[in-house]
């Protein structure tokens, strides 16, 4: 067990853990941030995607020790008032169904939109194929990413 200090959603959080514990379970079970989901445990489904220093990372296979000293952002802090262009587009186009995978979808999409403000369908395929949605909301996710890109160009800030 080790005492580690993490920076999660802008706040310093101290945890006493096995340094091999995946970041996902630190977030969910120790810090109570349950917006990040457990889907597979082996980086196959993307439900656990968070941002670590701005990169989309699968927290279920990321040792907590690796996240020390990094900026960790979870879905709870993607925006302050649920008003990231992606969140607005998601609601506008009724993307979520069961909703379980959508935290991960949004976190992956947010990195895509920052890197490629005007993504092509191919860019979306490349960035989003690591996130499974069993409800099959892919066509709406695709449309919502395009819509968010447009909103961002029109001045809606992430």
């Amino acid at each position: 067990m080790e005492k580690l200090t993490l920076t999660v959603n802008g706040l310093a959080r101290e945890v006493n853990v096995d340094p091999n514990m995946p970041l996902l379970w630190v977030l969910r079970d120790l810090l109570g941030l349950t917006g990040t989901k457990f889907g597979c445990g082996v980086a196959q489904c993307g439900a656990c995607t968070v941002h670590v220093n701005g990169e989309a990372l699968r927290s279920c296979v990321t040792k907590v020790s690796r996240a020390v000293g990094q900026q960790i952002i979870t879905i709870e802090a993607l925006s302050e008032n649920n008003d990231h262009p992606l969140q607005l587009a998601w609601a506008e186009l009724d993307v979520p169904q069961c909703g379980y995978c959508q935290s991960g979808q949004l976190m992956s999409a947010a990195v895509l939109l920052r890197e490629k403000p005007n993504p092509t369908d191919q860019d979306i395929d490349d960035a989003m194929s690591g996130n499974i949605c069993r409800c099959g909301t892919y066509p709406r996710i695709r449309a919502a990413i395009h819509k968010a890109a447009k909103m961002q160009q029109e001045g809606v800030k992430p």
Partner: peptide
């Protein structure tokens, strides 16, 4: 519009 869309986009659902 879905009444549950918003809570399903910010991790609060």
């Amino acid at each position: 519009k879905r009444l549950d869309a918003s809570v399903k986009t910010n991790g609060s659902a």
